[in-house]
């Protein structure tokens, strides 16, 4: 390794490039693709709506529409519809769960109610598939690739970042622009999300969603 001078700058061993830089990038790419496919396999088919639940909500909507448009129909038509609907509601004909006791029922326990459980499981599955590979790769990098610098950032940063970006190297005089492999991992983490968009299409779970930096299609109101 050459000394730091004004004309010459520090150059790195090509072995670092071959065995650290490229493998980390390739591994992150492949893990991202793998994670996308595993997510596709795990999420499975969307839930079918239940007949009774839909019927109950439609019946309620019918009642509220009758109330809203009561002035548009002749009185006898309104009276007959009102009689029919009130009788149906009183007898509980449209209820989703006709055997449930009507009063004093505590709210269903989230753990035992199967519908809510599935919703929670979906969210948790997504988070797990996102977090676990990241933890694993970070541990792998910390274990194997510690103690040397990997690449030079083309733009300068202040000294405060030195401890974060050069985590393993304990020199005082090296520029902050020389960074360790962990910061190369972070650089890849943020930068490869657009590459995933290019090769996987949309709908892949990546860090930009978590950080809130990604832009969904904006609401139109």
């Amino acid at each position: 390794m050459a000394t730091l001078g004004e004309a010459k700058q520090m150059i790195l061993d090509p072995a670092i490039r071959d065995w650290v830089l490229l493998p980390i990038m390739v591994v992150m790419l492949l893990v991202g693709v793998l994670r996308h496919h595993i997510t596709v396999l795990i999420t499975g088919t969307p839930k079918k709506p239940q007949l009774k639940a839909v019927r109950e909500s439609k019946a309620l909507m019918r009642g509220s529409q009758l109330r809203a448009f009561r002035n548009a129909i002749p009185p006898h038509a309104f009276a007959s519809r009102k009689a029919f609907l009130t009788e149906a509601y009183d007898q509980g004909k449209y209820l989703k769960n006709p055997n449930a006791p009507k009063e004093g029922v505590p709210a269903p326990n989230p753990m035992t109610d199967p519908d809510m459980m599935e919703g929670m499981m979906e969210g948790m599955k997504k988070q797990v598939t996102n977090m676990v590979p990241q933890m694993l790769i970070m541990g792998w990098i910390n274990f194997f690739f510690q103690g040397f610098v990997v690449i030079k950032l083309p733009f300068p940063l202040t000294l405060r970042f030195k401890s974060m970006l050069q985590s393993g190297v304990d020199t005082r005089d090296m520029d902050v622009t020389w960074v360790s492999s962990l910061s190369w991992y972070f650089l890849n983490l943020f930068g490869l999300s657009s590459v995933f968009t290019l090769i996987l299409g949309d709908n892949n779970g990546n860090i930009l969603y978590i950080l809130g930096l990604h832009h969904y299609n904006e609401p139109i109101y």
């Binding site: 690449i151 083309p154 930068g191 490869l192 930096l213």
Partner: peptide, 14 residues
């Protein structure tokens, strides 16, 4: 978002 990917490729090729 584009800036982050730009930084990655810039650093890598540099």
């Amino acid at each position: 978002g584009g800036l982050l990917s730009y930084i990655l490729f810039h650093t890598f090729l540099y």
